[in-house]
Structure formats: structure tokens, C-alpha cells
């Protein structure tokens, strides 16, 4: 899929681009040691107070990936997050990280009048919490977007609904796809280079100056101003209106 996109076989207008991006990026991460890409990427995630909740994770952690699982916990509205990671550190810390990935779209649902959370992130947290308790994991929700800065409005709307329904907020942090470019752009690893090209092609980068402009030779093309219609001889008309 990555090669198809890099070689122009898929367009940015592809309707499921969000899923393709998720598949390309996390599919690749799955086959690399966590220290190569996943952990440096997660380390850049921030919460609403600017704290890096996922930095300093042990490089030898074991990571499992679950793509698009469906969760329907008791008394919860169902949800389908994009990726769920389980990270087991050698020191015994166990994290379940639910990733909701966005590209061009916003949250798929907003808060409503029901008692259970309906806002997409709130609904996902609502499901994640009992799973984490049951499995002995520390739950964290990661909102992965194409944005340039922390999506305060989205996160605070979700937290507001959680507080209304559960009297407590969720542990949520944010990360941008754009961070991947910075991590991979100088890599010598072929797969990481490809990923860097993908991010560049999708314009998922942070501003870092302007590209070098190539010299374009003079374009010797001009539209001729005078039309020369070749209509041949037109015979005289032999018709007149008789009064």
C-alpha cells in the first residue's frame, strides 16, 4: 500500500485515506523494533498540560497491536478505535493505549443527551477503562491528528462529557502525524525513508523553511494572437427575401 501511494497509484482523494495512513504507519511499526519508530513517536505525545505521558518507555518493552477492534463494554456505547497497543515494560508497567486516528475528518460523534458518553473520544474512554481494569493495564487514549497544535476544543468537549457522565475525566493525550516526518527524515533505514517520503507527499510536516527552488529554463511557448481560419471560398448567396 505504501509503495502504491508513493508511486502515484492512489490519490489523496481516496475516501478511506485515514485508514490507509493508519495501516501504512502502524503496519510498518509492527515490523520494526519499538525503539526504531514507535517509542520515539509516542514520546512526543502531550496532554492538555503539555506533559509527555509516554516518554521514557523502555526500549525492550513488548508491544502488541490490535487494528480496528470493536469494543462494547456493559452499559457503554460501542466503539471502534483505529489501533490498540498493549505495551508491557520489563519493570512491570503495563499500558493499554487506545489510538483514535484522524486525517482530514473530525470526531465521528459528539455529545448528546443520553446518560452514557456519545462523543467519540469519551465513548472510547468509557469502553477502555473497564478493559484496562480487568486486564491490569494503565489506560491512555491517544488522539492522533494531522493538526499543528493541541486540539483543545476536541479534547475538552470529550472530557466535559466524561465528567458529566462519570464525574471524572479521562487520560488523553495528542500527537500529530506530522511528528513522524521529523523522526524519519534523516533516517538511513529504507522503510523509514519511505515513511518520510509518504509524510512529505501527504504534506504532513511541520514548517521548516522553504524548499530549494529548481531553475526552470525559459518556456518558449506563446499563444498566437491572430487566428487564421481556413474556410476556403464561400460561394455567393443567391437568396433574397421578396417583399
Amino acid at each position: 500500500m505504501l509503495m502504491a501511494f508513493l508511486n502515484g497509484k492512489l490519490s489523496l482523494r481516496q475516501t478511506n485515506m485515514e485508514d490507509m495512513l493508519t495501516s501504512n504507519v502502524f503496519g510498518l511499526m509492527r515490523y520494526l523494533p519499538p525503539s526504531k519508530l514507535l517509542l520515539p513517536f509516542l514520546a512526543l505525545a502531550v496532554d492538555s498540560d503539555g506533559r509527555h505521558l509516554l516518554s521514557g518507555l523502555d526500549e525492550t518493552s513488548e508491544v502488541s497491536y490490535d487494528f480496528w477492534p470493536t469494543y462494547k463494554e456493559a452499559r457503554c456505547n460501542s466503539c471502534e478505535p483505529d489501533v490498540v497497543l498493549k505495551i508491557d515494560e520489563p519493570n512491570g508497567r503495563r499500558i493499554i493505549l487506545l489510538i483514535e486516528a484522524k486525517y482530514l475528518s473530525g470526531k465521528s460523534s459528539e455529545a448528546d443527551e443520553n446518560t452514557r458518553p456519545n462523543d467519540q473520544l469519551a465513548r472510547e474512554w468509557d469502553n477502555l477503562q473497564p478493559i484496562a481494569v480487568r486486564e491490569g493495564h494503565e489506560p491512555i487514549l491517544l488522539y492522533l491528528t494531522a493538526g499543528l497544535s493541541f486540539p483543545s476544543e476536541d479534547i475538552s468537549a470529550s472530557q466535559k462529557e466524561l465528567i458529566k457522565a462519570q464525574k471524572s475525566s479521562g487520560i488523553m493525550c495528542w500527537l500529530s502525524w506530522r511528528h513522524l516526518y521529523a523522526i524519519t527524515k534523516d533516517s538511513e533505514h529504507a522503510r523509514l525513508k519511505d515513511l518520510s517520503c509518504l509524510m512529505d507527499k501527504m504534506q504532513l510536516t511541520f514548517f521548516s523553511g522553504f524548499s530549494q527552488v529548481q531553475n526552470v529554463p525559459p518556456i518558449n511557448w506563446q499563444f498566437k494572437k491572430n487566428f487564421e481560419w481556413e474556410m476556403g471560398n464561400i460561394p455567393n448567396l443567391r437568396w433574397s427575401f421578396e417583399r
Partner: peptide, 11 residues
Amino acid sequence: NGENTNNLIKQ
């Protein structure tokens, strides 16, 4: 010329 134009527009 077409190639140069294409390059210009891309840039």
C-alpha cells in the same frame, strides 16, 4: 516546453 511548464507549476 511542456515539461518545463509542468516543473514550474509543480514548484
